[in-house]
Amino acid sequence: MGDKAAGGIPHYYLYGDQEADVELDLLHIEPIRERSGPNDWRIRPHAHPDHMQVLLVKSGGGGIRMEDRQLPIPAPGILVVPAGVVHQIDFDPGTDGFAVTAALGCLRTASAGDPRLATAAGRPAVYPLAGTGLDIPAVIDTFHWLHREFIWSAPGRRTAILAQYMRILVVVLRLSIAHQDAGTATPDRDYDLLVRYRALLEEHFRSQRSLGFFAGELAVTPARLNAACKARSGKTASELLYERIVIEAKRYLVYTESTVAQVAHLTGFDDPAYFNRFFTQRVGISPGAFRKQAARSEG
């Protein structure tokens, strides 16, 4: 079920589901009752190394523990759980709402036009909706609309899903401004270092392969950077770097007509043969085979 991280805390990709190879543009939404009801309304301590969550609690309530803080869950309310934050939730029986789990690549895409959206989504928090000036029925409808688009296969589905997710991020941003002192968890230094490392990866993963470079930019030793990454993501700093390169390569292979050699160049490889070995070793099939497989699944 979960990948045991340091201290025995499971790392999940989607709660209760683990995939060794995570697509960074993934978004998932499900009613709270579907996951929590069968588990006695308890979500046991875990973290999502590559995903963040926004939960809407329409009715019910309970309590959530994020890192070292125990917080009550208001209804209606919004819970924000950034990637890497250890959390446990105890819902009141019958609690109704939705849990949106978005990969970091999806968050980056949705917040590209306004970096404040990503900043707000990176703040662990519990926000009551009452008294904020937000249109609560409209907020609830946004989650319902996202769920409808997620389970239907209608034209423009992917665009509609992203649009509704952007609306949710705008809600989170406005709540973060309205509740400057909302009960928020305080992630530790490992978490802070991981967040800064991920941001640095986005700038340099195509051109830098040296862990020493990233550690130097972050003003820590490579060993310190590795320890933080292992503690908070269950992966080494190098594994996170390689994972990011592979995901970018997959995007080019699936969404563009670039040749494999061009994809190699676009992801920072001078030697296409080395790129082929790098990709095959981590994905299990060659870039060309991966492209064919993806085309068959799309068809």
Rank of each mutant, 00 (worst) to 15 (best):
L225Y: 01
P38A: 04
V100L: 06
P10K: 04
N39L: 10
K4T: 14
L71C: 07
L253M: 09
K250V: 07
K235D: 03
I43Y: 05
Y13Q: 05
A295E: 07
E243R: 14
A112M: 13
A185K: 01
G268Q: 09
A231P: 02
I73W: 02
E67Q: 04
I29Q: 00
V139W: 00
R277I: 08
V100E: 06
V170G: 06
S238R: 14
Q262W: 11
R33L: 07
A227L: 11
V171F: 03
Q208N: 09
E202T: 13
H51F: 08
T109Q: 10
R69M: 06
L173F: 13
Y252P: 07
A154I: 12
H87Y: 00
E298P: 08
Y191S: 02
V80N: 01
T236P: 03
R33G: 07
I29G: 03
N226C: 01
R244G: 08
Y242N: 14
Q88H: 07
P128R: 00
H144D: 15
D68F: 11
P222Y: 07
F275V: 04
E19C: 13
A223F: 09
P222T: 06
R296D: 10
A178C: 08
R33F: 12
A75E: 12
I64G: 00
F214V: 08
L169Y: 07
M166C: 11
E217N: 11
A6C: 10
L218Q: 06
L218E: 07
E298V: 15
S286P: 05
I78E: 00
R251P: 10
T132S: 07
L129M: 07
D25K: 15
G60K: 08
P82C: 04
S238F: 14
E243G: 11
V22D: 01
L218W: 03
D135S: 06
P115H: 04
I285C: 09
F205H: 02
V263P: 01
D21V: 15
Q164W: 08
T267H: 09
G84S: 01
T101K: 04
D135T: 05
A160M: 14
L211Q: 07
I168C: 03
E248P: 00
R251K: 06
F213C: 06
E202N: 15
K292M: 15
T101I: 04
A228Y: 01
V170S: 12
G77H: 01
I151T: 13
Q88G: 04
L266F: 13
Y165P: 05
A273N: 14
T267C: 09
G212P: 02
L162N: 14
V80F: 04
I78R: 03
A103H: 10
I161R: 15
T119A: 11
Q88F: 01
Y252N: 15
E149I: 10
F290H: 02
H48Y: 01
F269V: 01
F279E: 02
H265V: 14
P222L: 11
P124W: 02
L26Q: 05
